[in-house]
Write a protein that binds this DNA or RNA. Sequence first.
DNA 1: AGTCAGCGCGCG
DNA 2: AAAGCGCGCGCTGACT
Length: 797
Amino acid sequence: MKKTLAERVRNQNCKECELHLSANSVCLMGRGPVPCRLMIVVDAPGFQDDETGRPMVGRVGSLLDESLAAIGFNRRDFYITNLVKCRPMEKQKILKIQEKACRHYLDDEIEAVKPEFILTMGNTALSVVKKSGIMKHRGNVLPLGDAQVFPTIHPAAVLRNPRNEMLWKTDLEAFARLVKGESGATPTRTYLVNNQKTLNLCLDAILKSKAVAYDLETNGFEEYVPGAKIATISVSPKPGVAFVVPIHHPEAPWKQPERVLGAITTALAYTPAKRVAHNAKFDDRWLHQFGKPVYADFDTMLAAHIMDENRLKGLKPLAQMLLGVDAWANVDLAKGGAMVEDLKKLAKYNGKDSDYTLRLYYKFKEQLTVEGNERSLRIFTKIMMPASRCLTDIERTGMWLDQERMAERLIEINRRLEKLTTRLTKLAGEEVNWNSSQQMSAILFGKLKLPVIEMTDGGAFSTKESVLLRLRDKHEIVPLILEWRGYAKNRGFLEGWGELLDGNSRLHANYKLAGTVTGRLSSGKEEGNRGRGLNMQQVPRDPLIRSILGAPPGWRFVEADFSQIELRIAAHYSGDQTLQRLYQLGEDVHMQMAVSMTGKPASEVTKEERKKAKAVNFGFLYGMGAKKFVEYARDSYDVEVSLEEAKIVRDRYFEKFAGILPWHQRQRRIVHNYKRVQSLIGRVRHLTDIDSEDEDVQAEAERQAINSPVQSLASDLMLLSLVTLHDEMDPEEALIVGTVHDSILFQIREDTTDKWTSRIKEVMENLPLKKKFGVELEVPIVVDIKVGQHWSEGEEI
DNA sequence: AGTCAGCGCGCG
DNA sequence: AAAGCGCGCGCTGACT
């Protein structure tokens, strides 16, 4: 009798890795017809698979069956198997060594099954094509011998998080199209603009369209560095059409490429059409650098984000999910990027980018104008789009760096680090890489036998700062390590800045308007973690470091801070009478808190006690427990508090501010009922985790429901200030050079400082919330302004 | 040469 | 019963 594939290939006595020890079904083979045109590969058997001896049973299996039915297939159409044949240990990830041991079984299966198409699910299964990074590769067909591999996410990811469902369905539909030989969506008619006649057609189309999307292919991520080039620009005046204009690409036919770009940017700047781009700030910065200023009216990335802050926001996943199109190729950066890519190929990708951006625009425009989305639309048009445009300028302007100061301080830091390293080596008795927590731990807890205070999540002995602080008196090496870490960290910042400087001694940050779930800005590298960029939000507060940044001669550096903004907003939301009255009277709330907690009069409250009170304000406000407060007080403020003391402090807090707990309860009720919360002006945070079966996860969502509307509004107040001031300011007199959550940084010409500082205060303290959003704050907003030559050295005015 | 997770830490 | 929230980055060490 003929043996089945499983019988031929399976080895139930396999001992090639440790997994055979714990698995019920050792070497569990796949199931399905042999040969078979279609194959599914997932990571490894689950608990139920292991029990039953069949792949893909249980909840994951049911999801698979439903999903296959939805695309017109059945699991019997597939040979379904696992990459690793034995069930991995509980909650342990699959090791490469296990994959390797098993690989020959899979290869035998593939050889026998002879699939044309292999659907791999999850990052682990992706390694059948020796790739990693499922979110990058999903939806892109990869070859494996005679077969085509189509990677998608793991169905368990969909069960774990409903957010992934759309992506999963989208991928399976694309897979079905691949198998049936169908193509996704209507094609893009791409015109390569390589002569004056087509250029004129393109310009004409820009000027006559209702909405025009544009997208650049560049040779890098920083437009201001020498050698920066725009390979092509693609313009889509209507869906299904793209004009791709080569600019600096070697195959471009123009004698004066800047003039061509000038013509296009002029048309874009003056067209009555809506200017649309995906992550427009990037394209606009480059266009400004090489052509004329263009500012987008509609950013599809931001539109996606305002409606769902949790979703993927890249052009490709959005187009795949919302337009039902297949994945399309990217410029291959590994091969040298856009400038070396064949122009015809490049034009094809670039054309798709702008075409799909335009199609997304029509989709999002419709979604944003449906009933119920009025407030999101208002935030989008009145805050996000204007903020995107002014951040374009802020990023281009950059922040001045005092190179003399930096050089001096770097020398000093290096000198101290050298000294410290010598002493550390002596004390350790060997050469140690003090950057390695592993090596440091070996010295401290192994060699020197210091007591272990805390474990890391990964089970190592923690060497973090709070641990070292508690070991400070146990060995003379500890304070030296702390000192070393501080200097090493600072050196890292300065060296980083040195590499980022442009020719005018300025640093350019990159801000993301769609980088956080609350609507705050994030700062750092370009979209997709690419390129380099100053992170304005984590410049050390240490004056030795921070004051290296500032204003060049002739200008003043001005910092405008919202004072205790989150606490004020919480006072508004909660309606807490005590907190509101304190702010109306202009009291020092942290001091008040200290007074109420200690029972002492303000004059007797120590600095330490006020610090403790500040920690209370932020911690308890957002749901911190007594236990955490003990740690927090110790680690952050070097104040020892017993658990009993902490409980009393916590109780007193909620007694004094009696409106806080009811407000927490209201937020909890809202998030349980609606699975989302909103800020005063209507920015939404979706919290589907509130329905999690895990109570810790639920509790987390509840705390987020409390924090989000506060953080969110604080951020929107800042952004509103940013756009208002940016609109007013004459760049000859005043420039915005950065922002950090609740503060805005300016560079203001000396002779106009008084005028502008009072205007800044006026604007930020009296934002037109009533006029623009129909709401009002019950609490006064106060802005502190510091003026100086360098950051952190300013005088309060 | 690139990618990834873990750790530790910078900021609000 | 137990519970702050929101980020990005550099480095190591392990891997492809």
